[in-house]
């Protein structure tokens, strides 16, 4: 199983015409302001030397350009994204795309904890592994992970969709509300109130379309659909055991 690089490059390819910015010359506020300005004028903006610094590309809005970080980024990259396309050519630290509402973020490496935490819309694609608590408390949007995700992924997700191609850790989908998780590969365990439901024809059609757009391969193992059973939506004293297990 490998990533279809041609399809992926439609999303993440960097052209020779990209305008380059050297992050070394800026503090993070200046850099993010500069990105906003440059992105209105050019097709692609490439940021050299991100050096895993935190808060890169925070609060970007709908813009003409894609923003490419040529290396790993630190915490909260692309947080509050309101429409920009961001590509990270490396790994991302905690909380990539936290609270984003629109746009897309592609991470070519792996992400640390809480990718897409509390996101309300837009798309995050992770070519490597997602860390623990991927999609925690997400309220909308889609997360696609080519590798695996860590423990408590989808924890308290209100809405939205997480698609994982290669397995998950413990407590998958714990205490979800109305989100959906599609998982292929081994799962450590399902979390409190998470339940497996049959994958329907409409789901499969949706996944085929999604993965093709994201440039990700169809996995070898079949998808399982994980949702909330709903026993935690209202308090019932007979459910005390599940409540205590959270």
């Amino acid at each position: 199983m490998s990533i279809d690089q041609t399809a992926a490059d439609r999303w993440v390819g960097l052209s020779d015409d990209a305008v380059h910015v050297d992050a070394d010359g800026f503090d993070v506020y200046e850099l993010n302001r500069t990105l906003r300005e440059l992105a209105q004028e050019s097709q692609q903006v490439a940021v050299d030397n991100p050096r895993a610094r935190h808060n890169l590309g925070i609060g970007l809005e709908v813009m003409r350009a894609e923003v490419h970080f040529l290396g790993s980024v630190g915490y909260y990259c692309g947080g509050f994204n309101a429409g920009a396309s961001i590509v990270v050519h490396g790994n991302a630290g905690w909380g990539v795309g936290e609270a984003m509402s629109e746009g897309r973020i592609v991470v070519r490496g792996s992400t640390a904890w809480s990718a897409g935490a509390g996101m309300r819309g837009g798309t995050i694609v992770i070519h490597g592994d997602g860390g623990p608590r991927t999609g925690i408390a997400m309220k909308g949007g889609d997360i696609f992970v080519a590798g695996s995700v860590g423990f408590l992924s989808g924890f308290m997700a209100h809405r939205g969709k997480i698609v994982v191609l290669n397995g998950a850790g413990e407590g998958l989908g714990a205490s979800m509300y109305e989100g959906r998780i599609f998982i292929s590969g081994a799962v450590g365990s399902l979390g409190a109130d998470a339940i497996e439901r049959p994958v329907e024809a409409g789901d499969t059609e949706e996944l085929v379309r999604d993965l093709a757009v994201a440039g990700l391969p169809w996995p070898d193992a079949p998808f399982r659909k994980i949702e909330a059973e709903g026993r935690l939506w209202y308090f019932d004293k007979h459910d005390g055991r599940i409540w205590r297990s959270i």
Partner: peptide
């Protein structure tokens, strides 16, 4: 604790990995 600290000293070829739980 943070990747950016390692990148102060070592160059862009750095491959990093989190120690698991």
């Amino acid at each position: 604790t943070e990747e950016q600290a390692l990148r102060r000293v070592f160059d862009a070829e750095l491959v990093t990995e989190y120690v698991r739980e």
